[in-house]
């Protein structure tokens, strides 16, 4: 894996992560409520949250928006990139601001990315532009139905 693994969270960090994967309270002093539930001081929770974000144990903390509900659109897409061209194509694809995530995967379809655009029409426009620049076909896999999405992993 090409990504560096940050320092492991300790037991208290893990309790905080697990507590914060539920619904963060919508009250004036939400951290105090979370801290009370964990038997910790509010300052300790704040300090550890900051530290985990700095160390990239957490990638973010806050509201998770469903961009498609705000009028935008996103779609999963994949390409079959010849190995010799992989770096060039990755750079070309990543240069599009509409490309939010891009992963290399072990398969004939070896590049998988998510396109996010302000309007549904933007998806087709961007897909065509990527095909034009790279000279490769883009397979798109729009979500037809979502069965369950939580992205909660027990720490």
């Amino acid at each position: 894996m090409s990504e560096a693994v940050p320092a492991a969270p300790d037991e208290t960090d893990r309790r905080i992560i697990n507590a914060l994967q539920g619904d963060f309270p919508l009250v004036a002093e939400p951290y105090r409520e979370v801290a009370a539930g964990l038997g910790l001081a509010e300052a300790e929770v704040l300090r550890r949250l900051d530290a985990m974000l700095d160390r990239k144990v957490l990638t973010r903390f806050g509201p998770m928006f469903q961009i498609e509900r705000t009028g935008g659109a996103f779609v999963l897409a994949a390409m079959r990139v010849p190995e010799v061209d992989f770096e060039r194509v990755a750079a070309q694809v990543n240069a599009f601001p509409e490309v939010a995530h891009n992963y290399r995967r072990e398969h004939a379809l070896n590049m998988w990315f998510v396109l996010a655009t302000a309007t549904p029409e933007g998806i087709a426009v961007t897909t065509a532009a990527i095909e034009e620049v790279t000279g490769l076909r883009v397979f798109s896999f729009p979500k037809e139905r979502e069965y369950f999405v939580e992205m909660k992993l027990r720490a």
Binding site: I17, L20, D23, V57, R60, F61, P63, M64, M151
Partner: peptide, 29 residues
């Protein structure tokens, strides 16, 4: 702010409010 976030949660504009762990960091490599 709280009222508007609550409304966006109710209408699904916000999926949830919370922490997103780096899955490599918590051992899901």
């Amino acid at each position: 702010v709280i009222a508007r976030l609550r409304h966006m949660l109710d209408t699904g504009v916000i999926r949830r409010i919370g922490a997103v762990p780096n899955h490599y960091a918590i051992g899901y490599t």
